[in-house]
């Protein structure tokens, strides 16, 4: 299989890039794929924490590009899944420690051993962003249903297009279906109308994410998590499977289904 480099980006901070990277990477690894997660948020690394691998870091991405260690030495194998690895960012340097050219070489080196290389992009549009997208084949844009997030995502899609990444796909994160139904939150159609890129998936708001992030266990490992289930479906879509989209009527409540049957509910 030809390996793919996917950059997870958003422009705005705090919309769930790192959570998305961790969960999609884990979900792909659960499907038996060989995955490496690449944290490019140098100076503000988080992906290792979310993956629960912080205490195993010896070398980082800056050591690799400066040839202080071999790439294989810096990669942290996740013992929970075969074929899941993390290349952590450095915490004591800043974004200028790596150049886009070095990133491109690094991702190309990883291509031979892995099916999916997921790059966790830092917030912003400066050098960290340019580094992260340098070696990418495609981008996954994460946006929450907020005007500010969609605005930044639009900017990012424009910059990605300018960099030659034309087939970006969108993940709408932290959607609250009840608020959308009340008309208090942007709905999926509004967001797609503005961004005009393909929708890869919708992840509902879920408290389990907070718990799993603190524990260092991605939510996809939790079978009761709705967000985890959404990420598993997105991972299947990434591999090319045709999985139906999440809809607003995601309740499995008996009364709701009964109402729907009688067409009492919308």
């Amino acid at each position: 299989m030809k390996s793919r480099v996917l950059v997870v980006t958003s422009g705005k901070g705090g919309v769930g890039k790192t959570t998305t990277t961790a969960n999609l990477g884990t979900a792909l690894a659960m499907m038996g794929k060989k995955v490496v997660l690449l944290d490019t948020d140098i100076g503000l690394r988080n992906l290792d924490v979310v993956m629960g691998l912080e205490n195993r870091i010896v070398f980082d991405i800056v050591d690799v590009v400066n040839a202080k260690c071999k790439l294989k030495q810096a990669l942290i194998r996740d013992k929970r899944f075969d074929g899941l690895c993390l290349l952590p960012a450095a915490q004591t340097k800043d974004k200028s420690a790596v150049t886009p050219h070095q990133m491109k070489n690094l991702t190309n080196e990883l291509r031979s051993d892995y099916d999916y290389i997921l790059v966790d992009c830092p917030a912003g549009i400066e050098q960290g962003f340019r580094n992260a997208i340098a070696g990418a084949d495609n981008a996954i844009v994460v946006a929450t249903p907020e005007v500010s997030s969609v605005r930044d995502a639009d900017r990012i899609v424009g910059l990605l297009e300018a960099a030659g990444l034309n087939k970006s796909r969108l993940i709408i994160n932290r959607l609250r279906s009840k608020m959308v139904k009340r008309g208090d939150m942007m709905n999926i159609e509004d967001i797609i109308d503005i961004l005009s890129i393909d929708l890869l998936g919708v992840v509902p708001e879920d408290e389990v994410i907070v718990i799993s992030t603190n524990r260092g266990e991605p939510a996809v490992m939790d079978n009761t998590s709705r967000a985890g289930a959404a990420y598993r479906r997105i991972a299947r879509r990434i591999t090319g499977e045709d999985v139906p989209m999440f809809t607003l009527d995601d309740t499995n409540n008996f009364l709701d289904r009964f109402k729907k049957l009688l067409k009492l509910a919308k």
Partner: peptide
Amino acid sequence: RSGQRIVAEGNVVILGDVNPG
């Protein structure tokens, strides 16, 4: 898209949307 800017001496015709920003 947001952040993109067109400056023209004459008329401008856009076959597409002009997004906020």
